[in-house]
Design a protein around this nucleic acid. Structure first.
Lengths: 364, 364
DNA sequence: GTGAAAGCGCTAACAG
DNA sequence: CTGTTAGCGCTTTCAC
C-alpha cells in the first residue's frame, strides 16, 4: 500500500519534472523538495538563508543549494508576495514619465532602491486626477509596498484616505495645502522669485510669464506667486496682464498662439519667465520661428534646467532643481515608513532649495 | 451544534469585519461573501462579470455589486495573478530610462497598454549585461506577462533560452546577430549612412565620428558601419582614424578629452557625427566651451533627434527615429504573442525607417 | 442558481 | 534537525 502510494507520488513527480523540463514549466519549491525527499519547509528556509538560524544541517543545506542551482530554481515572487503581504515593489506616479524632470527622478529612485531589493512601477497620469486615483488604487491592489507621488489632485481628500489607511507614501515635487503628509519638494516660490528678481536687476521691466494649467498644482501656483511677488516688490505690478496660462495637453499650439499675440499687442515686453521645461521648450521654439533674438529682443528664464541650456546659443538662464536630492529624500522617508513597524506617525516635510543658473539669455 | 458553529463563524466574521473597518485591513472576497451569506465562488463570478454567463440571478448579482460598492471591495491582484498565472504587467528593460529616447518610448508603451489593462515595470541596466540577465529573471519571477527589451547583451545565449521557454518578449531598438526573435528596430546603417552622405554632399570631407561603447551593441555598430561605408563610397577612407569610442559610463569627461585632442591634432576636421543623443549633448557642450563655431568651424550631425535641436542656435541636423511607431509595433507584437494560445511560432522583424532632419548645423 | 473544495507557490507556527 | 499543516486571496471544476 505504502509502496503503491509512494510510487504513485514519485510517478507523478517524475511526470511533472519531465514536463517541467520539456515545456519549461516553472519549478516550484515542491519540485526541488520532492527530488531530494525533503519538505518544502526545509527548502524554503534554506533558500531564504534561514538555514543556520533555523538550525538546518550544513549538509542538508548544501544538498538543497546544489539542487537549486542544478535545476535553476527561482522562487515565484508573486506567491511569496501574496504570502508575505508585500511585493518589494514601489509605485511612482507622475504626470508624464517622458518629462525629463520625472525621468531623471525615476532613474535616481531606481538606483537607490535597487540595492534594497526593490523594483519600481511607473505610471503617468496626464495631469488627470481621476486617472491618478485609479492608478493609486491599482498599484495598491498590486500590493506595492509604498508610493511616491507627484500629485495632480486638486483637493486632499484622497490623501486623507491614504493617511487613514496608513499606507506608506510620500509626495514629491507637488504638495497639497491643508495636509502635511511626508513630502519632499523645492521652494518653488523662492526659485521663481529669485529668477524674476534677477531679471529686474538686469534692467528688465515688462516681464511676461507663461504658466501651465492646471494651475492649482502647487508647484505652478507657487512659481506664479513668486513671479508676482517679485514684480510687486519692485512696484511693477502689471496685474497678471502679462501672465498667460497654457493648457497641459496643448502646450505647443497654445504657446504659439498666446506668445504671438502677446508680443504683437505689447511690444514693450522685454523678458519672459517660463514656468517649467515643457513651456520653456515651446516658447523657445516659437521665439525662434518668430525670429525674436534672445536676449537682445527678449530676455528668457525658466524653471527647470535642461542639459542643453548650458551650451545652447545663447545659453539659457534657468532655475535648477536638485533632482537627486529629491529622489534620495523621498526614498529614505518611504523606506523608513515601510520598515517602521506600526505607529511612528511622525511625518516629515523636506524643502530643498533651487539654484539659479545665470547664463546669457538674461544678460544684456 | 450547528448553531454553535454558525455563531462561531459569524462571530469570527464580525470580529474580522470590525478589524477591517478599524485598521483598514483589506477586504477579501470572503468578507463580502460572508456579509451576504453567499459563497466566495458566487461573488467572484459576479465581480468578474461572469454573472450572466454563469446564470446567476440578476437579483443576487445586484446584491453583490451593492455590497462591493458599499465596502469598496477591490480584488487583490497578486492573489488573482498567482491563481491565473499572469499579472497583467509587462516589463520594459532598457539601458537607462532617463535617456529621452527610452523615456519617450516608455511613455508610448504605457499609453498603448493602459487601455488593455496592463501596467509597465521599467528597469535600467546601465549597459550591464549581467544586470540585464538579473532583471530579466527578476521580472519573470514577478510573473510579468511579457518583456520589451532593448538589450545590452553581447551574445544571444540568453535569448535562445528565453525563446526555448516560449516566454513572450520582443526586442526593440537593438537586435542580435544570429537570432531573429520578434523585434522592432530602425535601419541604423541607412540612417547613419544618409547623415554622413549628406555631410559629404555639403562639401565636408574630414568627418569624425564619436561612438559610444560597448560598440558591440547593434545600433552603434550599424551606425558606425553606415558612417564608414558612406566614407568609403566617396573614396574618403580615413580608416577609422577619426572614429572615437566613448565609454558609456564616462561620456562627459571622455568626450571632452577625445574631442579636444582630436581637434588639436587634426585641424582639418570639418564635420562631426555623434552616434546618439548622449554623445551629441556632450559634444555640443564641449564644442561650446572650446568656442568652436557650428557650422562655420565644424559641421555637426547626430543620431536621435531632440526637441531642442529644432530651434537651438544653430539648429542641429539629426536622424530622427519614429519612437511612437517603435512602441506601437512592439506592443502589437507582444500582445499578439501573449494572447495567442500556444504554438504560432511565427516571429516578426519590423524594420522602420529614420528621417534625416536637415538643419543649420550642416549647411555651410 | 449556488456552494464546497482544490490548489496556484509560498512561509510560518507548531509538532515531533 | 526536519516535517505537517494551515493559510495568503483568488478562480475553477464539479457537484447538488
Amino acid at each position: 500500500m505504502t509502496t503503491f502510494v509512494d510510487l504513485n507520488v514519485l510517478g507523478h513527480y517524475y511526470c511533472k519534472l519531465n514536463l517541467a523540463i520539456m515545456s519549461e514549466k516553472r519549478l516550484s519549491l515542491m519540485d526541488i523538495a520532492k527530488s531530494l525527499n525533503l519538505s518544502k519547509t526545509l527548502v524554503s528556509m534554506v533558500v531564504n538563508n534561514q538555514g543556520d538560524e533555523k538550525g538546518i544541517a550544513k549538509k542538508t543545506q548544501l544538498l538543497v543549494w546544489e539542487k537549486v542551482k542544478e535545476l535553476n530554481y527561482k522562487p515565484n515572487l508573486m506567491a511569496r508576495g501574496l504570502r508575505l503581504g508585500r511585493s518589494n515593489t514601489i509605485g511612482l506616479i507622475v504626470s508624464d514619465i517622458s518629462n525629463p524632470f520625472y525621468a531623471k527622478i525615476a532613474r535616481h529612485i531606481e538606483k537607490l532602491i535597487e540595492p534594497l531589493g526593490y523594483n519600481i512601477i511607473i505610471c503617468s497620469t496626464d495631469e488627470n486626477h481621476e486617472k491618478e486615483s485609479r492608478l493609486k488604487n491599482l498599484l495598491k491592489d498590486r500590493m506595492v509596498d509604498g508610493l511616491i507621488i507627484s500629485t495632480s489632485q486638486k483637493d486632499c481628500k484622497e490623501f486623507i484616505e491614504l493617511l487613514d489607511t496608513k499606507f506608506p507614501f510620500v509626495l514629491i515635487d507637488r504638495v497639497m495645502a491643508d495636509i502635511k503628509p511626508n513630502s519632499v519638494y523645492v521652494d518653488n516660490f523662492k526659485g521663481a522669485f529669485d529668477a524674476v528678481t534677477h531679471l529686474m536687476n538686469q534692467g528688465y521691466v515688462n516681464i511676461a510669464a507663461f504658466a501651465v494649467s492646471p494651475i492649482y498644482v502647487s508647484t505652478i501656483k507657487d512659481r506664479i506667486e513668486g513671479y508676482l511677488q517679485a514684480l510687486r516688490l519692485n512696484g511693477l505690478d502689471h496685474d497678471k496682464k502679462f501672465l498667460k496660462e497654457i493648457p497641459f495637453n496643448d502646450v505647443k499650439n497654445s504657446v504659439k498662439k498666446e506668445l504671438t499675440q502677446l508680443l504683437q499687442e505689447h511690444d514693450r515686453i522685454d523678458a519672459l519667465f517660463a514656468v517649467n521645461n515643457n513651456i520653456a521648450i515651446a516658447c523657445l521654439d516659437c521665439l525662434n520661428e518668430m525670429r525674436v533674438k534672445i536676449p537682445d529682443d527678449l530676455a528668457f528664464v525658466c524653471f527647470d534646467d535642461l542639459e542643453v541650456f548650458k551650451f545652447s546659443q545663447p545659453s539659457i538662464t534657468a532655475v535648477a532643481q536638485p533632482m537627486e536630492e529629491i529622489a534620495k529624500n523621498a526614498v529614505d522617508i518611504l523606506m523608513n515608513v515601510i520598515n517602521s513597524k506600526e505607529s511612528e506617525p511622525t511625518t516629515k516635510q523636506v524643502v530643498l532649495q533651487t539654484t539659479l543658473n545665470i547664463r546669457r539669455s538674461t544678460v544684456k
